[in-house]
Simulated scan of single mutants.
Amino acid sequence: MINRLLRVVLAEDSVVLRDGMVELLGARGCEVVATAGTACELLAGVVEHRPDVAVVDIRMPPTHTNEGIRAAVEIRARTPEVGILVFSQHVETAWASRLLAGGATGIGYLLKERVARTSEFVDALHRVAEGGVALDPEVVTLMMRGGRRTRVDTLTSREREVLELMAQGHSNRSIAALLVVSERAVEKHVAAVFSKFDLRATHTDNRRVKAVLTYLAENGG
């Protein structure tokens, strides 16, 4: 990503908010190659420009219900190489689960209040562009609620904490700082999660992403 602008297609029906986000992203090293006010315009923009990331408001015209997230799911199916970062006023767990289904990588889901925090928003964009996962803490919390016994039940409370922070996109160093433990301790917890989830190292698989997806899938209800 060095010396290359992050290419973004931005879908937001509010012209004022859209223009503000374009200016914000431009100032933070991103290139908004297309903007869209409807789901159809979003799909066309992604096909034409093949961006690194599509930033999508869940609620778009004409009904302002789920047009944006439906378009995001379609983009994921058609062009899985394009990262998807959706944002919303509220958590839509059913659609979040669908977007994350199938072992997808390069997915983000933030609440609008998180998008307003510029550094967090841009950091999430880069994580998604690089094939990672960036989930709002509230999304993680709601999707974790389940009830049936799963592999997640084998985790210790500390391992769960570490995995939840992984789901939010934190690195081992960041997790260590947040939990006030050593980075080596975090590495041991992460290794324990991989072991309990039976995630073996390969040359191509991102075990962190797979661990997060397993966690959400088994706790999404």
Rank of each mutant, 00 (worst) to 15 (best):
P51R: 00
E81F: 07
S88Y: 04
I58G: 01
G83K: 00
M60N: 05
A54L: 03
A77V: 12
G68T: 05
A72C: 04
H49D: 08
L85G: 04
H64N: 12
I75G: 09
P62N: 11
I69V: 08
I58L: 12
I69K: 00
R78Y: 13
V53F: 08
F87M: 11
P62D: 09
P61Q: 14
D52I: 02
D57R: 05
H90G: 03
D52L: 01
L85V: 04
A77E: 15
V86S: 08
A54H: 01
P80S: 08
A71C: 10
N66K: 13
R78F: 14
T63V: 13
G83H: 00
G68F: 02
P51H: 00
V56Y: 02
A77Q: 14
P61I: 15
T65C: 02
T65N: 04
F87Y: 15
I84M: 10
D57I: 04
V91Y: 05
R50I: 12
V55T: 12
T63R: 15
P51Y: 00
P51L: 00
V91R: 04
P61T: 14
V53K: 05
V91Q: 05
E81K: 12
R59W: 01
I75S: 07
E74K: 14
A71N: 09
T65E: 07
L85P: 03
N66L: 13
G68L: 04
Q89V: 13
E74G: 05
V55D: 06
H64P: 02
R76I: 08
Q89S: 14
R59V: 02
I84P: 03
T79E: 12
E81P: 09
G68I: 03
I84K: 06
P61Y: 15
H90M: 08
M60D: 07
Q89M: 14
M60K: 07
V82R: 00
N66E: 12
I58W: 02
M60C: 08
V73W: 13
Q89D: 11
D57H: 06
V86R: 01
A77D: 14
N66D: 13
I69R: 00
M60V: 07
P80T: 06
R76G: 08
R78E: 15
E74P: 04
I58T: 09
R59M: 08
R70C: 04
P62Y: 08
E67M: 02
A54F: 01
P62W: 07
I84G: 06
V53S: 08
V91A: 02
H90A: 07
V73L: 15
I75M: 10
A54V: 02
E67R: 02
T79F: 13
V86F: 05
G68P: 04
T65P: 00
Q89N: 11
S88G: 06
L85E: 04
H49Q: 09
D52V: 02
V56K: 05
P62V: 11
I75T: 09
H90I: 09
E81C: 11
